[in-house]
């Protein structure tokens, strides 16, 4: 709710009325009434509160308390051996004016641009295809596309490092047939980020496909039959039926893939260590590298950078939610 000048005036008037002596009795009566209603509400919903209590306690212990305590700690130059020095918001200034931090955010965003649209398009096409085939084939295809999801990102990184090698790597061998290469994919600042995006897409498209498929199965078949009777082709059916009815699923997938992409860590850590010339230095890898130095500065800087990254990611999520408003499905 925004606070307009009018509403501020009304509040001020209400406050002055409430402060007058003759106003005391009705106000206390009102308070009692409110308290009574509140207690009835609590009693009525007791079971619900009891059931959500464990989750609230766990979230408080493992999310909210650590988060608040991290904010508190970020106002100190933390030392594990000497008395921490209170520095206020100094480290927020250091992080915000550090070009390397913003460069890493840019790298994360570029990685998202390389991967998220590709994941969404490939997954959509594969899911659309699986939906059209018979049950047995669909089962086989679903298992197949899910395989990359259960492969560790570390193992994928190592395998792709071998595949990208300029001397004897599979990819250079293949493109050699059309007279190209060899390319030192992981040592070229222009090619390294696109190169690590490929295993990123491969790892993520399987689970995305299955979630899209679940969304597609929820769309009543009668819609498509009606559209077909009207003469709608595949693209028209996709554009006017599938995509609008999967809006919430797509929104969820875009947000989670974007956040996961911004937080990419294992692939650049193992494949390029953030290089060459910081061209694959994603935000989490940057923070991790800062953390390693044995100085109090490094500890506080990495903590503060992590908190700022939290806000950046929250901001990006909010932006996506704003741009693509989630609605209740039309037919639900």
């Amino acid at each position: 709710m925004t606070m307009s000048p009018q509403s501020t005036n009304r509040l001020a008037t209400a406050a002055s009325v409430a402060l007058e002596p003759e106003g005391t009795a009705p106000a206390s009566k009102r308070r009692r009434r409110v308290a009574g209603r509140l207690s009835t509400h609590v009693m009525d919903n007791r079971t619900a509160y009891v059931m959500i209590a464990p989750m609230v306690v766990l979230l408080g212990m493992f999310v909210w308390w650590p988060l608040l305590y991290s904010f508190y700690l970020s106002t100190f130059e933390i030392s594990f051996y000497e008395e921490p020095v209170f520095v206020g918001l100094q480290f927020y200034g250091y992080v915000l004016e550090d070009p390397d931090f913003w460069h890493s955010i840019g790298i994360g965003a570029t990685y998202v641009l390389y991967t998220v649209p590709a994941i969404m398009i490939i997954a959509f096409l594969v899911a659309s295809f699986i939906r059209t085939v018979g049950r047995k084939v669909a089962g086989l295809l679903k298992t197949t596309v899910y395989v990359p999801t259960v492969v560790s990102a570390v193992i994928t990184s190592v395998v792709f490092v071998f595949m990208y090698r300029a001397d004897g790597g599979l990819i250079n061998w293949l493109i050699g047939f059309v007279g190209l290469g060899p390319f030192a994919f992981l040592s070229d600042p222009e090619l390294a980020l696109p190169a690590i995006s490929v295993p990123g897409i491969w790892l993520a498209f399987g689970i995305t496909t299955l979630i899209m498929l679940a969304g597609m199965y929820d769309i009543p078949q009668s819609y498509y039959e009606a559209a077909q009777l009207e003469g709608a082709n595949f693209f028209q059916r996709t554009w006017f039926i599938t995509i609008p009815l999967m809006k919430n699923v797509l929104l969820y997938l875009v947000v989670t893939a974007t956040i996961a992409g911004m937080q990419q860590f294992e692939l650049p850590l193992i494949m390029t260590q953030g290089g060459p010339t910081n061209s694959t230095m994603t935000p989490n890898l940057f923070i991790f590298n800062q953390f390693k130095d044995p100085t109090p500065y490094a500890t506080s800087f990495s903590l503060t950078a992590a908190l700022i990254l939290f806000f950046v990611l929250g901001g990006i999520s909010m932006l996506i939610f704003r741009l693509i408003r989630s609605d209740k499905a039309i037919d639900a």
Binding site: F80, Y81, D293, T299
Partner: peptide, 14 residues
């Protein structure tokens, strides 16, 4: 090494 040592120092178990 670096992260394990720092985590141990933070926990008072260096």
């Amino acid at each position: 090494w670096d992260q394990k040592l720092k985590a141990a120092q933070a926990a008072g178990k260096a």
